[in-house]
Nucleic acid binder design. Structure first.
Lengths: 209, 209
DNA sequence: CCATGTGAACAAATTCACAGCA
DNA sequence: TGCTGTGAATTTGTTCACATGG
């Protein structure tokens, strides 16, 4: 019965995948699933499912499998999906505007609550339900809205400065779409979405055939 | 002097990073760089730089370092950045429209040359320079435009079918933004951009403090 | 000399295989 | 009996350290 010592990013990402799979099964009315069946059904690895889950306690029933509802609840809690997460979009170019709309999901969690930009020409502009505010007011906006995650959709050259500003404004974590490697404060984790790197990898693969 | 046996995704992604760094140095007028200096300057690992590069031949000059221009050219070639890459966007919702604009870079490579959707209400709609065409004409559009990479910005439930259609249409590789694990044809590689997984990882990290 | 290129040591991640329990 | 949970084996990736060569 070990507590999580520290969990790798690889494992965490698989937890998200497992949750997705469990929701499909729930939808179908299933109540129990073994790691083997889960693996077969969704192209996963059974021992890996067990190793991953075992890091957070013993959920399974030996000889039977996992209770889908129980496991689902546990993963929801672990991934912080049991309460709202407020997001703030920084940079409302093409991508920022799309993200401001796209990342506001249905339900209770993940809602984009604010958008800011440096360009005075954009202040007051409407993006979905939001009004674009000046980046100078970032700290204020973060405080007012309770935003926890910053979505960075700024040009590469502005990214490091923007990150620093988000940190000072009291943000808790950042999803970065700018194609740069940020100098990161360990207190404010960053995940990068670097489309150019992905495209270049595909470019390499296209070349080799 | 080994040829590339097969290169890991991790290595390929670092090549993109190296290229980015070299461009900064070029810009500054530098002509030579050692793995040690490159590592120090950009927070990389010197032995890893050497290992990564060595997979593709011997570029360095012992006792001196690497010639920036030579290395840059080699990486450009490896990553397929020396000739145009035409992209087709499938699904022109908020995200698809933004990507259609965002992924058309300056220069000669990476240009979005077409956009398609299933919704007849969107046929003929303008997105930047493009006109949205019916997904039924996918194969034709791919042939006409010479698109090599498909950008999937469709809902999760449509993703698998869309991938299959892209494969039949003769696409070479896919960048997938739908939050699903695709069943993949080994001939048509896929890279996933799964924002939900990233947000859920950040959610976990926010919880643990 | 000095930095590359590389085998050897190490670390991380995955898979295996089985003990232990419902 | 059958599946979980887990140490042990394996594979994959990174770092070290040094022989090699400009």
């Amino acid at each position: 019965m070990p507590i999580q010592p520290d969990v790798s990013s690889l494992t965490l990402n698989r937890l998200s995948v497992y949750l997705r799979c469990l929701r499909v099964l729930s939808e179908e009315g299933a109540t129990r699933i073994s790691s083997k069946d889960l693996a077969r059904r969704f192209n996963l690895s059974a021992p890996q499912i067990r190793k991953d889950l075992a890091q957070f306690g013993e959920f399974g029933i030996r000889g039977v499998g996992y209770d889908i509802a129980v496991l689902e609840r546990r993963l929801v809690t672990l991934l912080g999906l049991d309460r709202p997460r407020r997001l703030i979009v920084v940079g409302v170019g093409n991508l920022g505007r799309a993200l401001a709309r796209h990342l506001t999901f249905n339900q209770n969690n993940y809602q984009v609550v604010a958008a800011v930009d440096t360009d005075p020409g954009k202040f007051g502009m409407r993006v979905g339900e939001l009004t674009v505010r000046p980046v100078q007011e970032l700290a204020e906006v973060v405080r007012e809205t309770g935003a926890e995650i910053g979505i960075m959709a700024v040009p590469a050259w502005a990214a490091q400065r923007t990150y620093t500003e988000l940190v000072s404004a009291g943000i808790g974590a950042v999803l970065n779409f700018a194609p740069v490697t940020l100098e990161v404060d360990p207190e404010v984790p960053v995940k990068n979405v670097d489309m150019r790197i992905h495209l270049e990898e595909l470019g390499f693969l296209l070349n080799s055939r």
